[in-house]
Simulated assay, not measured.
Amino acid sequence: MQFRSIAISVVAVASMAAAQLTVTTPSAANWWVAKSTNVLQWSCKADNVPQTFTVLIGNQNPAVLVQPMAIIAIQNNYDCSVLITQDQANQAAGTGYEVLLANPINNTDVYARSEAFEIKPLGSLYPTQQAEQVASASAAAASASTTAASSSTKKGNSAAGLGASLVLAAAGVVGGVLAVL
């Protein structure tokens, strides 16, 4: 009898933690665009939320996607949002998609699930808020690459520094410090 009461308490605590974490984007009103960079946001400031989770994409229709597929193995909760590139999630345009935030050790232990959303065809417009976030992140990435290239050129290692900056930009590094010895 005591074991059952402990088990119920553990389930209640786990449910409480899962209820605190919420996927805010994508949603029915904030769709993604196929073969494009898309925004994933969640409620990271809530109490009792897991520190890390795995990000998966699934579809309610098993003919589209048989089971959820991991697109980020371990994501830190404190980031609050992340840009998902076309290399991470390259699903075809369609409806019934959902993003799941799950336990990194057991992906069937889902902490949060997005609303069902649509992935629109390549070339479609983003919702207004998401378009601003993607543009802002792209501008920050371009600025970081330009700053790194400028910094390395001023230090006298222009060929090596510029080459390293281009490699960082090509790898999709959004921010960071490039130190040239």
Rank of each mutant, 00 (worst) to 15 (best):
M1S: 14
M1R: 08
M1Q: 11
I6A: 07
I8V: 14
S9R: 14
V11M: 13
V11K: 12
V11D: 12
A12L: 13
A14W: 09
S15R: 07
S15N: 14
M16S: 13
A17K: 13
Q20N: 15
Q20P: 02
T22I: 15
T22R: 14
P26I: 08
P26T: 06
S27D: 04
S27A: 12
S27F: 05
A29F: 03
N30V: 04
N30W: 03
W31K: 10
W31H: 15
A34I: 09
A34Q: 15
A34W: 04
K35D: 15
S36M: 03
S36E: 14
V39H: 05
L40R: 04
Q41T: 12
Q41C: 11
W42C: 01
S43W: 02
S43Y: 04
K45A: 15
D47F: 07
D47P: 01
N48D: 10
V49W: 04
Q51E: 15
T52A: 09
T52Q: 14
V55H: 02
I57F: 10
I57T: 06
Q60S: 15
P62S: 02
L65I: 14
V66N: 08
M69A: 03
M69G: 00
I72P: 01
A73K: 06
I74S: 07
Q75T: 05
C80K: 08
C80N: 01
S81F: 08
V82F: 03
V82N: 03
L83N: 11
I84S: 01
I84R: 02
Q86D: 13
Q88A: 14
Q88D: 00
Q88I: 03
A89H: 00
A92I: 03
A92Q: 11
G96Q: 09
G96M: 07
L101W: 05
L101K: 03
V110E: 01
Y111H: 07
R113G: 01
R113C: 01
F117K: 05
K120C: 06
G123W: 08
S124W: 08
L125A: 13
L125R: 12
T128G: 04
Q130M: 11
Q130P: 00
A131H: 10
Q133D: 09
V134R: 08
V134Y: 03
A135G: 02
S136H: 06
A137V: 12
S143I: 09
S145V: 03
K154D: 14
K154W: 07
K155G: 03
K155L: 12
A159P: 04
A160Q: 12
A160F: 10
G161L: 02
G163I: 10
A164N: 13
L166G: 13
L166V: 11
A169R: 11
A169L: 06
G176W: 11
L178C: 02
A179F: 07
V180I: 10
V180G: 04
